[in-house]
């Protein structure tokens, strides 16, 4: 492979990896607090993509993106309120089943409301007009996605590590009862967690739709699965791990196909192979901590 092609693939890998990372963070944050996998998370990604499709028809693109992110964020909060909060005291498996139910509900609701017809995403032209740097042709989108992702992740880390609600989130993830004793309203912090995670998933959905401009009710399924794998590979419960896992997964997928073009049909399989290999050697994921408490 020429070095030009390699660089193009590297940007590709970073783009796909960033999108996985943004979705993976939501899985990881919810798992960190509630210890269950929110299987409807990939569908929030889909909702975000649809929201911008409709919003962009009436609003300038940046405003439409804000509306879509806000709408999907609200959607995540509503899902928690309706489908998970009533099950807080129930065994975790109940919330898990409920999440699978919400996932099917959102997908089929998508079919009914939006129809199964793929919709063409709105692509701001300047993002998809290739630019030439020497002998490399690259889409501005390939710079934009990692940059936006970096900004969003830094913003999130600031919230989690520098604000009071962030402190409460980190505290809940270890000891819910004690956190309540400190005067923290658990439901409010959990709602905020869903809101943040869903906002990031919607941001990913919007950027995904620019890169792969076809929106249908099931576009969230495969990226959702992949991001879930990324979260587990990175160490579920850890935001840093989710980012690392996402970028790693994106890189493995793109590079494997780049070096062995004949394997392109197996692209999705690489994710699962990576998952199995990492879990064999590091069951808690790359950055997952074993929970050890001093007695």
């Amino acid at each position: 492979m020429t070095s030009d092609l390699f660089i193009q693939n590297l940007f590709n890998a970073l783009t796909v990896g960033s999108l996985y990372a943004l979705i993976a963070i939501g899985y990881s944050m919810v798992y960190g607090i509630l210890r269950f996998i929110n299987f409807a998370h990939g569908d929030i990604f889909m909702v975000g993509a649809y929201f911008i499709f409709f919003a962009a028809a009436h609003l300038p693109w940046p405003l439409a993106a804000a509306v879509a992110i806000g709408g999907a964020s609200l959607m995540g909060i509503i899902v928690d309120r309706v489908a998970y909060r009533p099950l807080r005291e129930a065994p975790r498996i109940s919330a898990l089943i409920s999440a699978i139910g919400v996932s099917f509900l959102l997908e089929n609701l998508g079919l009914v409301v939006f129809t199964g017809l793929p919709r063409p995403a709105v692509q701001p032209q300047w993002m998809v007009d290739p630019i030439t740097l020497g002998s490399i042709r690259i889409l501005p989108l390939s710079f934009l996605v990692p940059a936006v992702t970096a900004i969003l992740v830094l913003g999130l880390l600031w919230i989690v590590y520098r604000t009071r609600p962030g402190l409460a989130m980190r505290s809940i993830s270890r000891d819910i009862e004690t956190t309540r004793l400190m005067g923290v309203s658990i439901d409010r912090i959990i709602a905020m967690t869903f809101g943040l995670g869903s906002a990031l998933a919607a941001a990913a959905g919007i950027m995904w739709a620019i890169r792969y401009p076809q929106i249908h009710p099931f576009i969230g399924v495969m990226p959702g699965f992949k991001a879930f794998i990324a979260a587990v590979v990175g160490g579920i419960g850890s935001i840093h791990g989710a980012v690392l896992g996402g970028v790693l997964l994106g890189t493995v997928e793109i590079m494997a196909v780049a070096f062995y073009p004949s394997m392109s049909g197996y692209r999705d399989a690489f994710a699962f192979v990576l998952l199995i290999v990492i879990l064999l050697f590091k069951p808690t994921g790359l950055m997952g901590e074993k929970l050890e408490d001093k007695i």
Binding site: R164, L167, A168, R170, S171, R174, D175, E177, T178, T179, L181, M182, G183, V184, D293, K294
Partner: peptide
């Protein structure tokens, strides 16, 4: 029941939540 992964200062901040 102190939060083992938070610093002493953070534990105190949490107490003032």
């Amino acid at each position: 029941r102190i939060l083992p992964h938070l610093t002493v200062a953070e534990n105190l901040t949490l107490g003032a939540y």
